[in-house]
Nucleic acid binder design. Structure first.
Lengths: 239, 239
DNA sequence: ACAGACAAGTTGTATATACAGGTTAAATTA
DNA sequence: TAATTTAACCTGTATATACAACTTGTCTGT
């Protein structure tokens, strides 16, 4: 087993730094970022490299670019932005989302009723299942079940996930970052256990989402099923 | 008023051509596209330019790239892919989606209850409203109301939208292409007119989506509200 | 005072090139 | 024959450069 260095490209460092500055408020909505020329001088990189950093910010909707003007910082999106690539914790209003573990991480056989087909390459390994309940202002909003292939995740089942971002833990301790994925959405009525967890009466409409996440580990995917009460909130995402 | 030539960049032509070939089946899922080097020879462009074309295909999920291998064509996504940037017609299984006009295009005042705020720059112009019902295999699946700013859209209200793509008409006749947008999703119960249109009994859960589209015309946005019966289908999209 | 030309600054498009690092299959060696 | 090395090919990252197209503010001439 080789030591993973995973060198971070320079364009990505610039992207991360600018993103941090935007979310931290150094650049306010409506502000114009330093020009590509200025950024290339500042970071000692060339303009194509800087443009690669900015294109990521455009893709995520943090800036829009306008010819002749510059890169304009956008208002952060409102709502519970779990339709995009960000983890649910990172994309919610700061400090209002709490996470409670319902079922602690445990090793199980792969369920047979997942919405997405589990690749054979993953089936030969075990499956780690955990479930969590997310609340906004102490009101339960969505319940989430996650299924991960048990490949090279030492001490994963011992970790605490209360009020922690799963994406953050995967990134920090296991060098796994989410690069994309797909999702399927339905509208269903709440029944049984979901009602209890979300504190709903039976028969109310809720969102049901199945997600498959792609990661930087080739062939490594994981899966999430999610039930969301959209009575007081909505899900939001970029097109 | 100047004549709009709107020269199409070369990288975009390559993108469009490859996309056409993929959707037409010239390249099958699992196939590997010609290498960037081969494409640059074929199209007489340099590799950076070709990479710009391919990056669009990656963003739309039509291909994934793998270092040392190439660009792998992906299975077309199943489901009704209206969560992504493609118009609903273009992203559904070929030939199965029919569109019926419920309310023909008409000039109205801007509604006051749209989910998204209409920019002041658009409010001073009138609003064109039209509504359509989409059916899969003759079964109504979603109902859609669209609101467009009436700016430089000659003869728009006279056009037929039956079994036509709104995106296609905007692109072909008015040089308007959708470049992005945002959406909000809720789960609600069907009531009143929606029940009749979707042929549902009252109280069943359906999806409610509000969308705001960005276009290549600066400051020009339009809006869609959509009700979708997800009993037999689901909405799908990339993360 | 006003209109128009101009200059400066910005992003968009495109070329040309180089090397790093991953993958595969053929060639070489033990 | 089997294992190892090598070569060929692929995408990823980065530099350096040039010109086009768009926006804004300034300068100039009337």
């Amino acid at each position: 087993m080789s030591h993973i260095v995973e060198a971070i490209p320079r364009y990505r460092k610039v992207y991360l730094e600018l993103k941090e500055q935007i979310t931290a408020g150094v650049f306010q909505p409506g502000d114009i970022l330093p020009s590509e020329q200025a950024l290339s001088t500042q970071y000692e990189l060339t303009r194509p490299t800087i443009r690669q950093s900015l294109s990521e910010l455009v893709r995520e909707g943090l800036i829009v670019k306008q010819k002749g003007i510059g890169s304009i910082v956008q208002k952060p999106k409102t709502g519970i932005g779990i339709l995009n690539i960000r983890g649910t914790t990172a994309s919610s209003p700061t400090g209002t989302l709490t996470t409670e573990v319902i079922d602690a991480p445990e090793l199980i056989d792969w369920p047979t009723d997942l919405a997405f087909e589990v690749p054979a390459a993953l089936r030969q390994f075990g499956c780690i299942r955990l479930s969590r309940l997310r609340s906004l202002y102490q009101v339960p909003v969505f319940y989430e079940e996650t299924y991960l292939p048990n490949i090279n995740l030492p001490r994963f089942t011992q970790r605490s996930f209360t009020n922690k971002s799963l994406f953050g833990i995967l990134s920090k301790h296991y060098d796994i970052s989410v690069t994309g994925g797909e999702q399927r959405i339905r509208s269903i009525v709440a029944r049984g256990r979901i009602c209890d967890l979300l504190n709903l009466s039976s028969g109310l409409p809720i969102l049901h989402l199945d997600k498959k996440y792609d990661t930087n580990r080739s062939q490594y995917h994981f899966f999430t099923t999610l039930w969301c009460n959209t009575k007081d909130y909505y899900l939001e995402g970029a097109l």
